[in-house]
Design a protein around this nucleic acid. Structure first.
Lengths: 341, 341
DNA sequence: GTTAGCTTTGAAAGCGCTTTCATAAAACAG
DNA sequence: CTGTTTTATGAAAGCGCTTTCAAAGCTAAC
């Protein structure tokens, strides 16, 4: 009986298996891959040899021989962003079940870095790439997809060998703002995301659209620039308050901004939701544990990660992917409240 | 002028470069790796050909030929844990500068999963493995290190080809508890981590030691079982309150537990820090944005990730690693306060 | 009983590199 | 100049697989 800790000096090779089973390497390969019918006795002999030698095919050699690496590149913006981390988890969970290994690299929201990621992954001969919310131009993605299967999230494109999974940010923001309106709020501030970020733009538009729909005039002073990070959320609230235009509710274009905003409101002695209602966007896992738990828009980034993983495999294996993002969903918790009058 | 989006159908091979430069493949290889002196004119011709063909060596082929993959396996417990994510970021940042690619896999705090991770990474022929806070027995790590370079964090072991980076959890917890004591608290509750988790055990011991040092008798009812996750932090506080033993401060064995605890205290109408002081452990990035910002013990997991990355490279390249974890550091924010009397 | 048609298997080439070995050319010593 | 080193370079083998090709062994059909 072998212990789990046991070590064998050199990993066995296919040829060692072949000679142990007294067959040719080709036969072993055929058995491993099921690429041809093999007589039962040889098959058994080979399996025995594999077990005895504890043989595991060398994926490097397979990769070279087949020209496929069973590896898929995943470009994220930052591996330590709570938002992306959930998506990565989805990708990881899904890919594991189908025998591909993900390789994660980070673009840091910089075009040059993201280009470098592509280069690196291409050099490593990945079989496909998933780009989570990349910030490169559409044309770039369309061009890359000619070279290898590509799925990108956060936009809506159509090209051969390219699949996109686009979440409806506009609708999500509309929902969030509408929720505030339904609670009787009319003076609603907005903390935006980076102004060149497509998702951020759509979310701002959703906010504006909801206001317009309700017949409420937009006040530019109620829009504060954010960058999707907590610290800037704090600053945005400071600016909003400095403008002296009163507001009773705030819609932050992502949860992290909302955290920062909440902290700054707390510092100013304003209570959520009693004095100010706050809604976020993303539904990070931590958002159900903030004080108070945050009302927000659920994106389902974990599910998107899973879908992206399935889609890239579909693409690689010649199927046509059908995965789409879930619909935006408002999750009402305790940071929003009917406006007292 | 080539556009950045441009595509070449098939990646160039070393042989194509060789024939374009009218030299032998060996010469090209030598130039690429600097393994021998080559005449200036050939060298130039080769560099020109490389540039013209946009050649990048195929790492798969290199891996096969050299028996090294320039790849290092990283075992984390969960890629979407905010704690580990920071460590991964450190590893990623560091490894990038030295030309290794990390492959991240997750053990989910389960021994069988973690064993499977080892198997998978070994099969992929990584050059070394970093195991972040693994939960397998010491003997396993020592045995594996015989097979390939290994660095593991969160414990203190010594064996050939193995390097450990051990953070002083005991001291950290002692510091945190001491801080509470210095603020005049004597009834201090503790929310533990998983009872089989070495770090959790050390932290609990640190708490106990600080109390003992201060001559305060330990009250078992003030110790509530946690599991390092937010939800259990909530439950722990419920249990603590149900026991009816009064407490004025709480030390949570990690920040995530502290978040859950804070929420539950909030629900019960208890204010932090006015009614209860709360201290966490880990100093997650979000902890400076909680309400109120959390006093906690800084581990510097990002730095530990960086160190682990350097250590594994040292090991692989035959140097002897010297990296150690930073010393525990109390970071006082706004969740703790002098006991009013 | 011979020819045609399958099926099972092995030999060998090839994937894109590295590296050893051998050789031709250049450098040096006598 | 000749003989010995040294240096730059190419040929070829090899890393561990897959896959084509061809041969050998069967079965079936007339």
């Amino acid at each position: 009986m072998k212990s789990d800790n046991e070590i064998e000096s050199t990993p066995a090779t296919l040829e060692m298996v072949a000679s142990a089973a007294k067959v040719s390497p080709s036969t072993v390969s055929r058995i491993l891959n099921g690429t041809a019918r093999v007589s039962l006795e040889k098959s058994k002999a080979v399996h025995d040899a594999i077990a005895k030698l504890n043989f595991r095919p060398n994926p490097i050699a397979q990769g070279l021989a087949r020209g496929k690496t069973q590896t898929i590149g995943v470009i994220t913006q930052a591996i330590d962003s709570p938002f992306f981390a959930e998506g990565l988890r989805g990708i990881e969970d899904r890919l594991e079940t189908v025998g591909y290994t993900p390789i994660f690299v980070s673009g840091h929201w910089r075009q040059t870095d993201e280009r470098a990621c592509f280069k690196q992954l291409l050099a490593r001969r990945v079989d496909g790439i998933i780009d989570l919310h990349g910030c490169l131009p559409n044309a770039f993605f369309i061009a890359q997809a000619k070279r290898l299967p590509l799925v990108v999230t956060g936009r809506d494109l159509s090209a051969p060998s390219l699949h996109t999974i686009h979440f409806d940010n506009f609708e999500g923001a509309r929902l969030a703002t509408q929720h505030l309106l339904e609670l009787g709020h009319e003076q609603i501030g907005c903390i935006t995301g980076p102004s060149n970020h497509p998702n951020a733009i759509d979310r701002l538009r959703g906010y504006q659209s909801a206001l317009a729909e309700a017949g409420i005039a937009m006040q530019p002073e109620l829009i504060a620039q954010g960058d999707f990070r907590e610290a800037q959320g704090e600053i945005a609230v400071m600016q909003l308050m400095a403008s002296r235009i009163p507001f009773t509710a705030l819609m932050a274009c992502n949860d992290q901004s909302a955290y920062g905003a909440a902290l700054q409101l707390y510092r100013k002695g304003l209570r959520i939701p009693d004095d100010i209602s706050l809604v976020g966007f993303d539904d990070l896992r931590t958002s159900s544990f903030t004080i108070p738990p945050l009302t927000t828009v659920r994106i389902g980034i974990y599910e998107i990660g899973k879908s992206a993983a399935m889609a890239i495999v579909d693409l690689i294996e010649g199927r046509v992917p059908q995965q789409a993002a879930p619909a935006p969903e408002l999750v009402v918790r305790e940071s929003t409240k009917r406006l007292r009058r």
